[in-house]
């Protein structure tokens, strides 16, 4: 009995600690929701639209940030996320269009992303090349390849991925549409955030990853293969970026367009840094960016506050900047990022 009670107390403390640590995120979240309600003037439909759009906009950013995080936590800067996403969006679309099967398309996108991750690892870890150059190579190659092999007029025979309604939960007001009737990759993203967090901070793989990213020679002297860990993480990360690409072409748009990633891979890097290389933090940061985009879209759709549209349109960005500058504080990247590793 005593043991159980002690456990309970411990859990309460842990919960309190988490709430305390995330207090600024919670405050911001509350402020944003309040702002949304205000702009929607309690019109449920508008509020719901903004929140649902926030989640959609944030999905590729979170995935991109998780990809960058796996790389940087193990010591490799990945500025090629944009290219990985673009290649996967294209690859996933082409395969889905040819086979007519969306699932195979998504898997193809992930596979292309992993391949891109392997290329990045080959240049920056295997050949010990400059990591920034390696990432740039990925981005340029992706633009070239996808443009060259792009054929106008291809479509998806089965249409794009469709929402999955989670039973009665989907009928709840606001939350039902925002959280419980999304498309598969959005659900998967919501699942990946805690999974990657748990992996990084609660498993031996995560401990080794962080050790390799902070002090590779220390990891090597206790028998961890620095090269092996970096390959593994870059390929896993590539897979996640691949999912982001598949999201763009197969879930959000339903076709492929030249340069359709439109800088999302770079915004994802910013999201990762704002989130302090932590999946939960990155998720919060991505929601903030997503919210800014969503509000902007909403204002374009409806002619709200036409007297001073620029001013209102500015608010979410001001909120983003103030919030990020105000309490994200000094973020410290993993110590060894950017440096190729060699033993002797």
């Amino acid at each position: 009995m005593g043991l159980v009670m002690a456990d309970d107390a411990k859990h309460r403390n842990v919960l309190a600690a988490i709430v305390y640590r995330l207090r600024w995120w919670l405050v911001t979240g509350a402020l944003l929701v309040a702002f949304t309600l205000w702009t929607g003037e309690f019109h449920q439909a508008q509020t719901t639209a903004i929140l649902a759009s926030t989640l959609r906009h944030s999905t590729p950013l979170v995935l991109g940030a998780l990809c960058g995080m796996l790389g940087e936590r193990s010591g490799v800067i990945n500025i090629g996320i944009e290219g990985q996403m673009l290649m996967s969006a294209w690859g996933g679309f082409m395969v889905a269009s040819a086979t007519g099967d969306l699932l195979i398309g998504v898997l193809a996108g992930v596979a292309v992303g992993m391949l891109m991750g392997a290329v990045l690892a080959g240049i920056s870890v295997g050949l010990r090349g400059d990591q920034i150059i390696a990432g740039t190579v990925l981005n340029i190659a992706a633009i070239g390849i996808t443009s060259f092999f792009f054929t106008q007029g291809r479509t998806l025979p089965s249409g794009k991925l469709r929402p999955i309604r989670l039973g009665p939960l989907a009928d709840l007001p606001v939350a039902g549409r925002v959280l419980f009737s999304n498309k598969p990759i959005t659900y998967l993203t919501l699942l990946l955030v805690p999974v990657v967090w748990f992996g990084l901070f609660r498993t031996t793989w995560g401990l080794r990853t962080r050790a390799v990213g902070e002090h590779p020679s220390a990891a090597e002297t206790v028998g961890i293969s620095v090269v092996g860990m970096r390959y593994l993480n870059l390929i896993l990360g590539g897979g996640i970026a691949g999912l982001a690409g598949a999201y763009l072409s197969l879930e959000a748009v339903g076709s492929f367009e030249r340069g359709m990633t439109n800088g999302k891979g770079f915004v994802a890097l910013a999201v990762m840094i704002f989130g302090r290389w932590n999946p939960i933090g990155a998720w919060g940061a991505a929601l903030l960016f997503g919210y800014a985009s969503a509000v902007q879209t909403q204002f374009q759709f409806r002619d709200w506050l036409t007297s001073d549209p620029q001013f209102v349109g500015m608010i979410p960005f001001v909120v983003t900047i103030v919030v990020l500058a105000g309490f994200v504080g000094r973020a410290r990247p993993p110590a060894s990022i950017g440096q190729p590793y060699s033993r002797e």
Binding site: R208, R210, A211, E214, A218, A219, V222
Partner: peptide, 15 residues
């Protein structure tokens, strides 16, 4: 050869 941001226990058992 210690990882500065990890705890003592994590450093001791690493690997």
């Amino acid at each position: 050869q210690l990882v500065p941001v990890l705890t003592v226990a994590e450093n001791v058992v690493l690997g």
